[in-house]
Write a protein that binds this DNA or RNA. Structure first.
Lengths: 215, 215, 215, 215
DNA sequence: ACTGCCGGGACGTCCCGTTCGT
DNA sequence: ACGAACGGGACGTCCCGGCAGT
């Protein structure tokens, strides 16, 4: 309609939305076409099969997650990196949540392994915790099992959106909701932090909040 | 075949399994009938529609969750109640996980509210934390936001199974896996407990483990 | 409608007719269903895919051709066996001609070998010629290459129907047409027969004709 | 790409190949466009419909068959004309075989008559046999029914390619295969020839073979 | 309680013809 | 001459609900 090749992107956006809302199998080609405002025939021109759309969305998700995992300068203070990466990861995992939720259906038959990017996100989190431990940000008193702690933290941020949807009936994840999710993530991490580390995290959080409110 | 009304139960069991594995929309009546070993016509005799099966499964799930929420004697020590209830909740939420995951598809159209039992599970957890606080099992030092803590704890136990499936590729939740999940739940709770409370929880955990290994 | 399981057979009959007339790809499921007088949904109950119909027709054809290849008593005079087998083969090859004509489309993808029954028919013909040679029914003067002769004979009877359709525009193969085809087959064989063998074949032919006219 | 109007010819070549291999209905516009290496929109520029392609191919076939039917000098010895015409006819009938095989689908609806060129080829063959009879090349002993003989001969050469494909699984008709086919054609004609005519045909055959091996 | 059969409709796919812009 | 994009509809598949018969 407006730009040149926007139709393809509009298809991807609407597909992602519908897949997330109704699941892959619960979404029909006709619904996608209608949401985009084109005919099914035209949709077929852009993507020859429903799985082709998923493949394109997978590429998008991969690009996004690689972006925030490698895109932050190593010399930044750890709390800032931690907060920013976790926020980006939460957002991406939510935006493409059907990829994980319906993974079993999507790979049914050609037995693909579980998504490697999920594990990569978790590994990044685990790595940051180890670095925080080395740099003395974690308390020694209740000795933390970093592996277990990182997994719990991962779960809280990964499934925060699903929790909201299932328990509170929300269908969209606005900024305040995401902020709340991150606070729950932090509620798990905080008792393991030293007093000074807590202050550093609070400050880092505040910086991200302000930037987000501007945008 | 053997008993009188076993067919109905076999239908429910297989449906639950398939719905969990492939999602509601991704499972066909024919697949259910074939898995049970009966014809589609016979299946129709027992349940007139696919949603009727879901309704029956919802009743089962409701009965189960009400059972463990009200079935424990009030005079038991809190740690024992906590551990047993959380274990039962984890199991039930996993066994009927499609009810939550596909809730949006299942209520699509007749706009039903989000599942009340989920909120009830969370409320029970919240209530136990408040009682634990009153009885002095929680530390005062890092003052816990009980609402937030209970939500994080809920998320860890509720989505532990999904995490395993998505990240580690598991398709079944055996006892060791459930035990691991509960340890992650505990890793979140422990830094908020007093030293004596921790010992009480460890003992309660051990009792449940032994009982489980016997069965 | 009338009998118990006739629907399945009616589907096979109409499918065979339409596949022969319009080719496999040129025939639609809707056309078959309409020709049978049932809905597409019901047709799907009997055959879950278009290729399933073809598979069932292949079985029918295999049974028929095995029938006439093994069903004739070995002690009959050779000319009678020859005539009867060739007639039956002509009929079956015509009735299921789409199986051969569209073989490439039907096996496209799962690279099946060419139909073995065709080769079996040709082998049976070759074998009869060898027996005729041993028993002195063939002339020695223009020494026949039996392999080549049997192939030419096979081609004339196999493609007689196609010839009629393509050149004379016929769509059905009535008895007089089949008889004409067999005469062309015989026109190829006769110059290779001894005088007495010719008379024996003429008599065998006459017997088949009379039987056919009665039926 | 290279020449100006080559695209049109490339379309015709690939279409003919695909139609022969998969049948008219079994071939899609998209497949043709992909085989040629152009877009469907561009293909539409050259041929507005699938049937337009067929019409152009029919013209090509007509031109070719008229060429070999009228292109041979009348004063050549009969055996040479016979052999050369039959070879050319075999080749053309094979190259455009889908025109005959799928004739029913192609004319479905606007009830066209069967292809006149087929009859013309057969008429030419019949005419040559009559001339051969007049010039004493045929034996009197087993008196040949020229009409029937010419039809059998026609069938053997016309369907030789189909026979190879159906029974021997070949997909291409190389020169040795075509030569074999012509030998089978000759195996039908030979017993009707006089001894001297046979020698003349053998010599004519040899001349064609040598010319073919050079090219 | 269970089977065989059936109808209507939806889904994913895909095809053919067409229009634009370059 | 050619590529990008598109519309409308058909095809094969398949699903869900339903009923007669036993």
């Amino acid at each position: 309609m407006n730009g040149r090749t926007t139709t393809r992107q509009r298809i991807l956006d609407e597909s992602r939305r519908l897949f997330n809302e109704r699941g892959y199998a619960g979404t029909t080609i006709a619904e996608i076409a209608e949401a985009v405002g084109i005919t099914e025939g035209n949709l077929w021109y852009h993507f020859r099969s429903k799985l082709d759309i998923v493949a394109a969305l997978e590429d998008q998700a991969r690009l996004a997650s690689q972006g925030y995992r490698t895109g932050f300068p190593r010399d930044r203070p750890l709390p800032d990196s931690y907060v920013e990466i976790m926020f980006s990861a939460m957002r991406t995992q939510w935006d493409y949540r059907f990829l994980l939720r319906d993974a079993l259906q999507l790979t049914l038959g050609h037995g693909a392994p579980p998504d490697p990017d999920m594990a990569a996100d978790h590994a990044a989190l685990h790595g940051m915790l180890r670095r925080m431990n080395k740099e003395g940000l974690l308390r020694r008193d209740p000795p933390a099992d970093l592996e277990m702690l990182s997994r719990s933290l991962f779960i809280v941020s990964r499934y925060w959106g699903d929790y909201l949807r299932e328990v509170e009936g929300l269908e969209r994840l606005d900024w305040p909701d995401q902020e709340r999710g991150f606070r729950h993530h932090m509620a798990v991490l905080f008792p393991y932090l030293t007093a000074s580390a807590r202050r550093a995290f609070e400050a880092a959080l505040e910086r991200v909040y302000q930037r987000a409110r501007v945008a």
